[in-house]
Amino acid sequence: MIYEGDFSSPPGRFVLVAARFNAFIVDQLLAGAQDALRRHGVPDDRVDVVRVPGAYEIPLVAQRLGKSGKFAAVICLGCVIRGDTDHYDYVAGAATNGIASAALNCGVPVIFGVLTTDTLDQAINRAGAKAGNKGHEAAVTAIEMVNLLAKLPEGSR
């Protein structure tokens, strides 16, 4: 048997956890994710948005929302741009590891839509310019994963 998700409109609510830090980038990711959900048949009244201070704070909120039983998927959106100090490494690593941990601990898809870029230009390109919109891609991934988990045998969850 081969199991694969699809892009049909899944049941349930979705939540977007979006950082306020680097809002000029994250707001574009958020708009892209909302557009993708709409285009795949998820109406706005089944989508919640939770704003957190920055990418570092995303994992805790994502895990709490994922464990709440109220959401089919949690989509995490943020942007960390490398600077002149080690701060980037700590924040990007904590966000990455924390979101992965939340995904494994809560039983619903927790999707990584956090940009980790070396430059502002790279972030702009990934938030809707040359490289597409990674928020849109994260929402499509969430839809596919919700549909995949619905097809898997119960013992696999």
Rank of each mutant, 00 (worst) to 15 (best):
A33G: 00
A129R: 12
F14E: 04
P53N: 14
E154W: 08
T119C: 11
R126P: 05
D45C: 07
I25F: 06
T119W: 10
V52K: 10
A100Q: 15
R126Q: 05
V146E: 02
A62C: 11
D35A: 14
R126C: 01
Y90F: 15
L115N: 05
A102T: 09
A62K: 05
V114Q: 00
S68H: 13
C79T: 03
G69M: 10
A150V: 06
K70C: 12
T85W: 03
R51K: 14
G107S: 13
P53T: 14
A123Y: 00
A131R: 03
A139I: 12
Q122C: 03
R39H: 11
N133F: 00
K134A: 00
G128S: 02
V114N: 00
G155M: 10
L149Q: 13
N105T: 08
R64V: 14
A19V: 09
D118W: 10
G155E: 15
G12E: 07
T117S: 03
A18E: 10
V42G: 01
L29S: 02
V42R: 04
G98F: 07
R51M: 09
I143R: 08
T96Q: 11
F112I: 12
F21R: 04
A36R: 01
D35C: 07
R46W: 10
K134V: 04
L120N: 10
D121S: 13
C79E: 00
A19F: 07
G128P: 00
Y56C: 02
I143Q: 09
A62P: 04
K151N: 02
G155N: 14
K67D: 05
C76V: 03
A62Q: 06
G135T: 15
P43Y: 13
A95N: 08
D121Y: 07
A94R: 10
A138C: 11
I124A: 12
A73C: 13
V146K: 01
I58N: 02
E144Y: 04
R20H: 13
A62T: 13
